[in-house]
Each structure stands twice: as structure tokens, then as C-alpha cells.
Simulated scan of single mutants.
Amino acid sequence: MNVSKPTILIEYCPKCNWMLRAAYMAQEILSTFSEDVHGVLLIPSVTSGKYTISVNELIVFDRKEMGRFPEIKELKQLLRDQINPTKELGHSDKKEV
């Protein structure tokens, strides 16, 4: 077990029925970053309406702050920038204009 790799935390509101969304995002994260992360932890929140995604203790996306949920492509880019900035994301990578 390599605990030096970061753990992704997805804290979601179970009252809002966001568990499936959190599980889907966890699946996408693990598919992309399986060698780069220790794991993904789903945490049912006691705070209504909460949906945050963090790397260890650093929040990379907060639904209330952004006023929306992250797109998977956007989420992968945010996580990549924290976990492994040199990782190529293929079609999910940013397109420079």
C-alpha cells in the first residue's frame, strides 16, 4: 500500500441523491488516474447541498462556489494539475487556442 500517493475525496449530499453522480466521477477518476492515486473516497455529507472534490485536503471543485457540477473533462484537468501535471489526458486535455 503506497500512502504517498494522493487520495481523492468526493463529499456529496445523500439527501440530494448525488451518490450515483459521485460514484460515476470516482469511476472516471480511477480509470484515468489508477497509477497516480491511492484511491477515491466517497463521503456522504451531513451538510445539505454539499458536493466537493478534493485532493487530500485541497478542494479542487466546490459545487456551491461554482454554481454547478464539474464536467468530467474539466475535473480530470483540475485533478491532473494537482496529481501529475505532466500526464497526458488525450482527448480530455486542454486545447490551446
Score class of each variant (00 low, 15 high):
43 I>Y: 12
34 S>Y: 15
31 S>A: 14
16 C>D: 15
28 E>K: 13
13 C>G: 14
64 K>F: 10
14 P>E: 13
48 S>A: 10
33 F>A: 01
19 M>I: 04
71 E>A: 10
44 P>T: 02
87 K>T: 05
29 I>T: 06
94 K>V: 14
21 R>M: 11
21 R>E: 14
12 Y>G: 00
16 C>S: 15
77 Q>R: 11
17 N>R: 13
46 V>I: 12
81 D>C: 00
93 D>M: 07
54 S>V: 00
42 L>H: 07
74 E>I: 03
79 L>T: 00
11 E>D: 08
24 Y>K: 10
51 Y>N: 00
84 N>K: 09
15 K>W: 11
37 V>N: 02
47 T>N: 15
92 S>M: 08
57 E>P: 00
84 N>H: 13
32 T>E: 10
3 V>I: 04
83 I>R: 00
49 G>C: 03
81 D>P: 01
69 F>K: 03
22 A>Y: 06
30 L>F: 01
58 L>M: 15
70 P>M: 06
41 L>H: 05
75 L>Q: 02
74 E>V: 06
81 D>Y: 01
74 E>R: 02
19 M>H: 07
83 I>P: 01
65 E>V: 03
16 C>F: 14
55 V>L: 02
49 G>R: 03
36 D>H: 04
72 I>G: 01
66 M>G: 03
84 N>P: 07
93 D>I: 05
57 E>I: 05
20 L>W: 04
56 N>W: 09
81 D>Q: 00
32 T>W: 04
58 L>D: 15
52 T>D: 09
